[in-house]
């Protein structure tokens, strides 16, 4: 059998096409979240923040410092380029729709700690064109800084302002580097990872451990007997903008 040049080109072109189709079909049929085999016990990490306890020690910021040190968060002087994982904002900013015109200033102006909500239905992971951010089976909205192309679509999609972009090389703005955690490079997006690296070692998130008031209660929301679930049973809690259908895993006791 003799293969003409035309046949050869045709066969090789078709094989390339078939290989490409196979890859595309695989990637479509296998969404990122199902990569990890489901464990026997469902886990959904979540956090309850007790604002009444936090108010008692206004301006303490121990949680922020602990997070900054653990994750090499740069302290950038230019506010436009700031990187924040956990930070505080006035109550009126965090819960704009929960305000009455007559609330006392002590409430509207208290600082409320903010972080990524690790939504059950995250809008940020939906828009990512490279699956550089995705929701893990344990509910953590994770970032892969090796894959992020820096398009900032997730920044636009996040309704909570939880995502920061590295507008410059963060290293010069880190006072002392924690060698156990990578810094980031310029041009990628980052955010709170619920201390995924500490959870893997059986520890609680850095902010939880650092708080002198024990404001943060961290645990498995899928387990009805967990600490956060008990708190949520006993007291009235709110989430940030639940009307958007994102299902935040961070709850606030007001």
């Amino acid at each position: 059998m003799k293969i003409t040049r035309k046949d050869f080109l045709r066969i090789s072109g078709l094989s390339l096409l078939a290989a490409g189709c196979k890859r595309a079909a695989e990637s479509v049929s296998q969404p990122a979240s199902s990569v990890r085999a489901a464990s026997t016990q469902p886990v959904r990490w979540g956090m309850v923040i007790d604002l009444s306890k936090c108010r008692e020690k206004d301006g303490c910021n121990a949680c922020i410092h602990a997070c900054n040190a653990a994750h090499n968060i740069p302290q950038i002087a230019n506010h436009a380029h700031e990187v924040k994982w956990i930070w505080t904002e006035p109550d009126a900013t965090v819960f704009p729709s929960a305000q009455t015109d007559f609330a006392p200033q002590t409430v509207t102006e208290t600082k409320v700690p903010l972080l990524c909500n690790h939504c059950a239905n995250p809008p940020c992971t939906r828009v990512c064109p490279t699956q550089a951010t995705w929701k893990r089976d344990d509910g953590i909205v994770m970032m892969d800084w090796h894959r992020c192309i820096g398009c900032r679509y997730c920044v636009a999609a996040c309704p909570y302002g939880s995502r920061s972009f590295n507008f410059e090389d963060p290293r010069p703005s880190i006072e002392s580097i924690n060698p156990d955690f990578p810094t980031r490079t310029k041009g990628v997006v980052e955010k709170c990872n619920f201390c995924e690296e500490r959870l893997a070692r059986g520890l609680k998130p850095a902010c939880v451990d650092a708080c002198p008031q024990r404001v943060f209660t961290f645990g498995n929301l899928a387990d009805p007997e967990s600490e956060p679930r008990q708190l949520l049973r006993e007291r009235f809690a709110v989430q940030r903008e639940p009307e958007l259908g994102t299902g935040p895993s961070v709850f606030y006791l007001v």
Binding site: S176, I177, N178, P179, D180, F181, P182, C195, R198, A206
Partner: peptide
Amino acid sequence: WNCHNDPQTVAGSRTRSTP
């Protein structure tokens, strides 16, 4: 190395923490 650190070069600046 743009992101990952060499513990020996950065160790001087800070005692190693346990995350």
